[in-house]
Simulated assay, not measured.
Amino acid sequence: MAQRQPAVYIMASAERGTLYIGITGNLKFRVWQHREGLGGGFTKRYDVKRLVWFEHHADFPAAITGEKQLKKWTRAWKLQLIETANPTRHELWEHLQD
């Protein structure tokens, strides 16, 4: 079994579109699930398929704390975070390591 690497991530439906914030132990697999529309829910309903930001954490408690803090941010702050780290808002999924 692959080692789990906790990560907080932001997915988007389009540039300045709907945002989704999540946490996972296997970022590449989880983003693949979103892209394929598996599991239903929010990301499937709003066609949220583009990974635009992510941050790895040392452990799950730190990742959970980071996710909770990020979810409290205003939309403008979230967009600024994305634009600072990913100015062209290109799809990051293809750049993830296996």
Score class of each variant (00 low, 15 high):
Arg4Gly: 05
Ala63Pro: 01
Glu55Pro: 00
Gln33Arg: 14
Val52Ile: 11
Ser13Tyr: 04
His57Thr: 05
Leu70Val: 03
Lys72Arg: 14
Asp47His: 13
Arg75Met: 08
Val31Thr: 10
Leu51Ile: 13
Leu96Met: 02
Leu79Asp: 07
Arg30Asn: 12
Leu70Gln: 04
Arg45Ala: 13
Trp77Leu: 11
Ile23Thr: 03
Glu83Asp: 15
Leu96Trp: 00
Ile64Glu: 07
Ala7Phe: 00
Arg35Met: 09
Lys71Arg: 13
Ile10Ser: 00
Ile82His: 00
Tyr9Ile: 06
His57Ala: 08
Thr18Ile: 08
Lys71Asn: 12
Ile10His: 04
Arg45Gln: 14
Trp93His: 09
Pro61Ser: 05
Asn26Ile: 03
Arg30Pro: 04
Leu27Cys: 03
Arg45Gly: 12
Glu15Ser: 09
Ala7Cys: 09
Thr65Trp: 07
Thr43Val: 12
Pro6Val: 10
Gly40Glu: 11
Ala2Pro: 09
His56Cys: 05
Phe54Asn: 03
Leu96Arg: 06
Ile23Val: 07
Ala7Glu: 01
Phe60Leu: 15
Glu15Lys: 04
Ile10Trp: 00
Lys44Asn: 08
Leu92Phe: 06
Gly37Val: 00
Glu36Tyr: 10
Thr65Tyr: 10
Ala7Ser: 02
Thr88Cys: 04
Thr88Pro: 04
Ala85Ser: 11
Tyr9Glu: 04
Gly66Ala: 15
Leu51Pro: 10
Lys71Cys: 05
Thr24Arg: 01
Thr18Pro: 03
Lys78Gly: 11
Glu36Cys: 12
Arg30His: 13
His56Lys: 08
His57Arg: 03
Trp73Ala: 14
His56Tyr: 10
Ala63Val: 11
Arg50Asn: 12
Phe54Val: 01
Gln80His: 13
Leu92Ile: 08
Glu91Asp: 11
Asp59Tyr: 06
Glu67Asp: 12
Arg16Ala: 04
His90Asn: 11
Leu70Thr: 15
Ile23Lys: 07
Thr65Gly: 14
Glu67Ile: 03
Ala14Tyr: 00
Glu94Met: 02
Ala7Asp: 01
Leu92Val: 11
Ala58Trp: 13
Met1Cys: 14
Leu19Glu: 01
Gly40Gln: 15
Phe54Ile: 05
Thr84Ala: 13
Glu15Thr: 01
Gly40Arg: 07
Arg50Lys: 14
Ala14Cys: 00
Gln69Ala: 11
Pro87Gly: 12
Leu92Trp: 09
Ala7Arg: 00
Arg35Ile: 10
Glu67Thr: 04
Val48Thr: 09
Ile82Lys: 06
His34Gln: 08
Tyr9Asp: 08
Leu38Asn: 13
Val31Gln: 01
Arg30Asp: 07
Arg50Gly: 00
Thr18Glu: 08
Leu27Lys: 05
Gly25Ala: 10
Glu91Ile: 11
Gln97Ser: 08
Val48Ala: 09
Trp32Phe: 10
Gly25Tyr: 08
Gln80Thr: 11
Asp47Arg: 13
Arg16Lys: 03
Thr65Asn: 14
Lys44Arg: 14
Thr43Arg: 03
Thr43Asn: 14
Val31Asn: 02
Asn26Met: 03
Ile23Glu: 10
Val48Asn: 05
Tyr46Ala: 05
Gln69Ser: 06
Asp59Asn: 15
Arg4Glu: 15
Asp47Asn: 10
Tyr9Trp: 09
Phe29Gly: 09
Glu55Thr: 06
Met1Trp: 05
